Computed example of a mutant assay.
Amino acid sequence: MAKAFIRRYLPTPEQIREMKGLGFLRNRLSDPSLWHLNRRSASWAMFWGLFCAFLPVPFQMVPATAIAIVFRINLPLMILLVWITNPLTLLPFMYSGYWLGSHLLDVPMLTWHQLEHLATRALHMSDAPVDAFEVGLLQQLKPFFLGSVVLGLVLGTIGYIAMRYFWRWHVVTAWRKRLEARLAQKSNDISAQ
Protein backbone atom coordinates (compact mmCIF):
# COMPACT_ATOMS: atom_id res chain seq x y z
CA MET A 1 0.00 0.00 0.00
CA ALA A 2 0.94 3.64 -0.25
CA LYS A 3 1.33 3.78 3.53
CA ALA A 4 4.15 1.25 3.60
CA PHE A 5 5.94 2.99 0.73
CA ILE A 6 5.76 6.43 2.38
CA ARG A 7 6.54 5.20 5.91
CA ARG A 8 9.90 3.83 4.75
CA TYR A 9 11.17 7.38 4.29
CA LEU A 10 9.59 9.06 7.33
CA PRO A 11 11.21 9.60 10.71
CA THR A 12 9.74 7.82 13.73
CA PRO A 13 7.77 9.68 16.44
CA GLU A 14 10.71 9.27 18.80
CA GLN A 15 13.11 10.87 16.32
CA ILE A 16 10.84 13.89 15.91
CA ARG A 17 10.24 14.28 19.65
CA GLU A 18 14.02 14.42 20.16
CA MET A 19 14.52 17.24 17.61
CA LYS A 20 15.84 20.47 19.00
CA GLY A 21 13.86 23.65 18.51
CA LEU A 22 10.38 22.28 19.15
CA GLY A 23 10.20 23.67 22.70
CA PHE A 24 6.62 24.10 23.91
CA LEU A 25 5.23 21.96 21.07
CA ARG A 26 6.99 18.83 22.29
CA ASN A 27 4.23 17.85 24.77
CA ARG A 28 1.55 18.13 22.04
CA LEU A 29 3.26 15.49 19.93
CA SER A 30 1.49 12.58 21.63
CA ASP A 31 -1.69 13.14 19.53
CA PRO A 32 -2.13 9.94 17.43
CA SER A 33 -3.56 11.91 14.48
CA LEU A 34 -0.13 13.47 13.97
CA TRP A 35 1.30 10.04 13.23
CA HIS A 36 -1.64 8.57 11.29
CA LEU A 37 -1.03 8.26 7.56
CA ASN A 38 -3.95 8.28 5.16
CA ARG A 39 -4.73 10.05 1.89
CA ARG A 40 -6.07 13.18 3.59
CA SER A 41 -3.23 13.61 6.07
CA ALA A 42 -0.54 12.82 3.49
CA SER A 43 -2.00 15.24 0.94
CA TRP A 44 -2.30 18.09 3.41
CA ALA A 45 1.16 17.33 4.76
CA MET A 46 2.49 17.72 1.21
CA PHE A 47 0.78 21.10 0.85
CA TRP A 48 1.77 22.55 4.21
CA GLY A 49 5.24 20.97 4.24
CA LEU A 50 6.15 22.45 0.86
CA PHE A 51 4.57 25.78 1.77
CA CYS A 52 6.55 25.99 5.03
CA ALA A 53 9.73 24.92 3.24
CA PHE A 54 9.58 28.10 1.17
CA LEU A 55 8.63 30.47 3.96
CA PRO A 56 11.33 33.14 4.14
CA VAL A 57 11.81 32.70 7.90
CA PRO A 58 14.34 30.80 10.00
CA PHE A 59 13.29 27.65 11.88
CA GLN A 60 10.59 26.58 9.41
CA MET A 61 10.00 23.38 11.40
CA VAL A 62 8.29 25.36 14.18
CA PRO A 63 5.45 26.76 12.02
CA ALA A 64 5.22 23.39 10.24
CA THR A 65 4.81 21.59 13.57
CA ALA A 66 2.24 24.13 14.77
CA ILE A 67 0.23 23.72 11.55
CA ALA A 68 0.36 19.92 11.86
CA ILE A 69 -0.90 20.14 15.44
CA VAL A 70 -3.70 22.59 14.62
CA PHE A 71 -4.93 20.77 11.51
CA ARG A 72 -4.06 17.29 12.83
CA ILE A 73 -2.12 16.12 9.79
CA ASN A 74 0.88 13.84 9.40
CA LEU A 75 3.84 15.47 11.12
CA PRO A 76 6.72 13.24 9.95
CA LEU A 77 5.93 13.84 6.29
CA MET A 78 5.69 17.60 6.90
CA ILE A 79 9.05 17.68 8.69
CA LEU A 80 10.64 15.69 5.87
CA LEU A 81 9.29 18.11 3.27
CA VAL A 82 10.38 21.20 5.20
CA TRP A 83 13.96 19.98 4.88
CA ILE A 84 13.80 20.29 1.09
CA THR A 85 15.19 23.76 1.70
CA ASN A 86 18.39 22.91 3.52
CA PRO A 87 21.79 24.63 3.52
CA LEU A 88 22.72 22.87 0.25
CA THR A 89 19.56 23.86 -1.65
CA LEU A 90 18.80 27.20 -0.01
CA LEU A 91 20.52 29.49 -2.53
CA PRO A 92 18.76 28.12 -5.66
CA PHE A 93 15.40 28.33 -3.88
CA MET A 94 16.10 31.87 -2.65
CA TYR A 95 17.08 32.91 -6.16
CA SER A 96 13.93 31.28 -7.59
CA GLY A 97 11.79 33.11 -5.05
CA TYR A 98 13.46 36.44 -5.79
CA TRP A 99 13.20 35.88 -9.55
CA LEU A 100 9.49 35.04 -9.32
CA GLY A 101 8.78 37.98 -7.00
CA SER A 102 10.62 40.44 -9.21
CA HIS A 103 8.61 39.28 -12.22
CA LEU A 104 5.32 39.46 -10.30
CA LEU A 105 6.08 42.98 -9.05
CA ASP A 106 7.61 43.97 -12.39
CA VAL A 107 10.83 45.22 -10.83
CA PRO A 108 14.30 44.57 -12.28
CA MET A 109 16.47 41.85 -10.83
CA LEU A 110 19.39 42.99 -8.72
CA THR A 111 22.92 42.66 -10.08
CA TRP A 112 25.48 40.51 -8.28
CA HIS A 113 27.09 43.63 -6.82
CA GLN A 114 23.70 44.85 -5.52
CA LEU A 115 22.95 41.39 -4.07
CA GLU A 116 26.31 41.36 -2.30
CA HIS A 117 25.66 44.83 -0.88
CA LEU A 118 22.15 43.80 0.20
CA ALA A 119 23.44 40.66 1.93
CA THR A 120 26.11 42.65 3.74
CA ARG A 121 23.55 45.21 4.96
CA ALA A 122 21.15 42.47 6.05
CA LEU A 123 23.90 40.67 7.98
CA HIS A 124 24.99 43.84 9.80
CA MET A 125 21.49 45.10 10.62
CA SER A 126 21.71 43.69 14.14
CA ASP A 127 24.89 45.70 14.75
CA ALA A 128 23.29 49.00 13.72
CA PRO A 129 20.90 51.02 15.88
CA VAL A 130 17.18 50.65 15.13
CA ASP A 131 16.89 54.17 13.67
CA ALA A 132 19.58 53.30 11.12
CA PHE A 133 17.31 50.69 9.50
CA GLU A 134 17.05 51.49 5.84
CA VAL A 135 13.63 51.47 4.21
CA GLY A 136 15.35 50.60 0.95
CA LEU A 137 16.39 47.24 2.36
CA LEU A 138 12.76 46.27 2.93
CA GLN A 139 11.86 47.47 -0.57
CA GLN A 140 14.62 45.35 -2.06
CA LEU A 141 13.52 42.28 -0.09
CA LYS A 142 9.83 42.62 -1.04
CA PRO A 143 10.23 40.59 -4.29
CA PHE A 144 11.98 37.82 -2.35
CA PHE A 145 9.22 37.58 0.28
CA LEU A 146 6.41 37.65 -2.29
CA GLY A 147 8.13 35.19 -4.62
CA SER A 148 8.90 32.76 -1.80
CA VAL A 149 5.30 32.71 -0.56
CA VAL A 150 3.88 32.33 -4.08
CA LEU A 151 6.42 29.60 -4.87
CA GLY A 152 5.43 27.79 -1.66
CA LEU A 153 1.73 28.06 -2.51
CA VAL A 154 2.21 26.81 -6.07
CA LEU A 155 4.53 23.93 -5.16
CA GLY A 156 2.35 23.05 -2.16
CA THR A 157 -0.72 22.85 -4.38
CA ILE A 158 1.13 20.71 -6.92
CA GLY A 159 2.33 18.46 -4.09
CA TYR A 160 -1.20 18.17 -2.69
CA ILE A 161 -2.65 17.17 -6.06
CA ALA A 162 0.25 14.81 -6.83
CA MET A 163 -0.14 13.03 -3.47
CA ARG A 164 -3.90 12.62 -3.98
CA TYR A 165 -3.30 11.07 -7.41
CA PHE A 166 -0.36 8.97 -6.24
CA TRP A 167 -2.41 7.58 -3.34
CA ARG A 168 -5.37 6.80 -5.59
CA TRP A 169 -3.13 5.20 -8.22
CA HIS A 170 -1.44 3.06 -5.57
CA VAL A 171 -4.76 1.90 -4.10
CA VAL A 172 -6.28 1.12 -7.52
CA THR A 173 -3.15 -0.83 -8.50
CA ALA A 174 -3.37 -2.87 -5.30
CA TRP A 175 -7.07 -3.56 -5.93
CA ARG A 176 -6.32 -4.74 -9.47
CA LYS A 177 -3.53 -7.03 -8.29
CA ARG A 178 -5.83 -8.58 -5.67
CA LEU A 179 -8.58 -9.02 -8.27
CA GLU A 180 -6.16 -10.66 -10.71
CA ALA A 181 -4.89 -12.95 -7.94
CA ARG A 182 -8.48 -13.94 -7.05
CA LEU A 183 -9.34 -14.58 -10.70
CA ALA A 184 -6.16 -16.61 -11.16
CA GLN A 185 -6.97 -18.61 -8.02
CA LYS A 186 -10.54 -19.17 -9.21
CA SER A 187 -9.36 -20.37 -12.66
CA ASN A 188 -6.81 -22.69 -10.95
CA ASP A 189 -9.60 -24.11 -8.77
CA ILE A 190 -11.84 -24.66 -11.79
CA SER A 191 -9.10 -26.34 -13.84
CA ALA A 192 -8.16 -28.54 -10.86
CA GLN A 193 -11.69 -29.99 -10.75
Score class of each variant (00 low, 15 high):
124 H>W: 12
137 L>N: 04
120 T>N: 10
141 L>Q: 01
106 D>S: 14
120 T>R: 12
123 L>T: 12
159 G>V: 05
149 V>Y: 05
134 E>N: 03
134 E>M: 03
140 Q>Y: 00
131 D>E: 15
144 F>I: 03
104 L>K: 06
160 Y>L: 11
153 L>R: 09
110 L>I: 08
148 S>V: 09
129 P>L: 06
129 P>S: 08
153 L>S: 07
118 L>E: 08
123 L>Y: 11
159 G>Q: 09
140 Q>F: 00
106 D>Q: 15
122 A>E: 05
109 M>T: 12
133 F>Y: 13
150 V>G: 10
109 M>V: 13
149 V>C: 11
111 T>N: 07
109 M>A: 12
106 D>L: 14
150 V>A: 06
147 G>F: 03
140 Q>M: 07
104 L>V: 12
161 I>S: 03
138 L>E: 01
125 M>E: 14
110 L>R: 11
132 A>R: 06
137 L>R: 01
130 V>G: 03
133 F>H: 13
154 V>D: 07
138 L>F: 11
130 V>S: 12
136 G>V: 00
134 E>G: 05
148 S>G: 12
139 Q>G: 03
143 P>A: 01
115 L>D: 00
150 V>K: 11
133 F>D: 10
125 M>H: 11
138 L>C: 02
146 L>W: 04
133 F>P: 02
121 R>A: 15
155 L>Q: 05
138 L>Y: 08
121 R>G: 05
118 L>I: 07
135 V>P: 00
121 R>E: 15
136 G>R: 01
108 P>G: 10
136 G>K: 01
152 G>R: 11
155 L>I: 06
150 V>T: 11
118 L>V: 07
130 V>H: 12
103 H>T: 07
120 T>A: 12
116 E>I: 01
150 V>Q: 09
154 V>Q: 04
111 T>M: 08
155 L>V: 10
157 T>C: 06
148 S>D: 03
146 L>S: 02
144 F>P: 03
147 G>I: 04
134 E>K: 05
152 G>A: 08
144 F>V: 01
113 H>G: 05
111 T>E: 03
107 V>R: 13
141 L>A: 02
159 G>A: 10
105 L>M: 13
122 A>K: 02
153 L>Y: 09
146 L>D: 04
137 L>D: 04
153 L>N: 09
145 F>G: 02
124 H>G: 04
157 T>E: 02
116 E>G: 09
150 V>D: 08
118 L>A: 07
161 I>G: 04
125 M>A: 15
103 H>I: 10
159 G>W: 07
131 D>T: 13
148 S>C: 14
137 L>V: 07
154 V>W: 10
116 E>Y: 02
128 A>Y: 02
158 I>V: 15
111 T>R: 05
116 E>D: 08
103 H>Q: 14
153 L>D: 06
156 G>M: 03
159 G>H: 09
104 L>W: 08
143 P>K: 00
144 F>Y: 13
160 Y>R: 03
113 H>Y: 06
127 D>V: 07
153 L>E: 04
107 V>G: 06
117 H>V: 09
157 T>M: 08
135 V>G: 02
156 G>I: 06
137 L>I: 07
160 Y>H: 10
107 V>H: 05
142 K>G: 00
105 L>H: 05
137 L>H: 02
124 H>E: 15
133 F>V: 15
106 D>M: 15
148 S>E: 05
108 P>Y: 07
142 K>Q: 00
140 Q>C: 00
105 L>P: 04
146 L>K: 04
158 I>G: 08
139 Q>K: 09
